[in-house]
């Protein structure tokens, strides 16, 4: 029984990281319609921004975290200006390949800058762990779960209760109508990219201490984030959370009770099944062919 609790707790922690990565992906998708294949590399950039600020520059926690967010915001704005604007009228597939190309670029620039050596990002909660019901969980993993939960609340508030957020949703629904209504569409689109980059930065900072950081960490994360957002529902924030946790639990429980060799097959099999039977996922949009 205590094993089951332990597996459940670990699956939850793993799923929270997938969920965090999926949220950044979903924000971009719902605001701009772009399926961002570089979303894993965004998270990698976040982790390495953390590596430069906390490990290399040795900044104190608060300053270091703040610096990471500044770097990521600038990066998001740059991404918007250099990639999204020139390609925004392109078809879906061209945009996908555009994000793939920029992903390769980011990965190799990081390789040139940081090398292939793995890093361990420190956490303010290093070394602390909590024992409950016979299971052990690191305090940092608990923090990840808590931050993920808090974030969903904040994002919901931002998107539904603030003028900026409502504007962003308006742009997402109908760009032309939003423009006619006098909204500054470009600024709101830029904000979406910045927000996505900030979330990726946060995801990077949070997963860095749990998983080791290396410049090739991006793609596997993106793959799981895709599965999470499909299962949860494309374009839905609660869906991204539910999907992420679902994938995390499937991975750990599947490995334990079905087969450790085929556990990812279970996660992706469920993803395909969802697409076939319920393409809108747990919470997602109903329209199938947008974007």
């Amino acid at each position: 029984m205590s094993d089951l609790i332990q597996l459940f707790v670990n699956g939850l922690a793993l799923g929270s990281v997938y969920a965090l990565a999926a949220i950044g992906f979903v924000i971009v998708y719902s605001a701009t319609g772009v399926v961002n294949f570089a979303s894993g590399q965004f998270v990698m950039f976040g982790t390495f921004a953390g590596v430069s600020m906390l490990l290399d520059a040795g900044l104190p926690w608060a300053v270091g975290y703040l610096a990471v967010f500044v770097v990521m915001a600038v990066f998001g704005a740059g991404f918007f200006a250099c990639l999204y604007l020139p390609l925004r009228k392109s078809p879906v597939a061209t945009m996908i390949i555009g994000t793939v190309a920029i992903g390769i670029l980011m990965q190799n620039v990081a390789l040139l800058a940081f090398g292939s050596w793995p890093f361990r990002l420190p956490s303010p909660l290093d070394g602390l762990s909590v024992h409950m019901f016979g299971a052990v969980i690191s305090a940092h993993a608990l923090m990840v779960v808590a931050v993920t939960a808090l974030l969903v609340g904040l994002l919901w508030f931002l998107l539904h209760r603030t003028p900026v957020g409502i504007g962003m949703r308006a742009v997402a629904q109908d760009m032309r109508a939003a423009r006619l209504m006098g909204l500054e569409v470009n600024r709101l689109l830029a904000l979406s990219w910045i927000l996505a980059a900030l979330l990726a930065g946060l995801a990077g900072l949070l997963l860095g201490p749990m998983w080791f950081a290396d410049v090739n960490m991006g793609d596997p994360i993106a793959l799981k984030a895709f599965a999470a957002s499909i299962i949860g529902g494309f374009g839905s924030l609660p869906g991204a959370i539910a999907g992420g946790i679902f994938v995390g639990l499937t991975e750990v429980l599947g490995a334990s009770y079905i087969s450790s060799a085929y556990k990812d097959l279970i996660a992706f099999g469920i993803m395909i099944l969802f697409l076939l039977v319920r393409p809108q996922g747990l919470f997602g949009e109903r329209i199938q062919d947008r974007g």
């Binding site: 670990n10 922690a13 990281v17 750990v252 599947g254 334990s256 450790s260 556990k263 990812d264």
Partner: peptide
């Protein structure tokens, strides 16, 4: 077994 990019091994070890 575990995958090259896996990050959680609790299932394998506890089993």
């Amino acid at each position: 077994a575990y995958g090259q990019n896996d990050k959680d091994f609790s299932a394998q070890m506890l089993s």
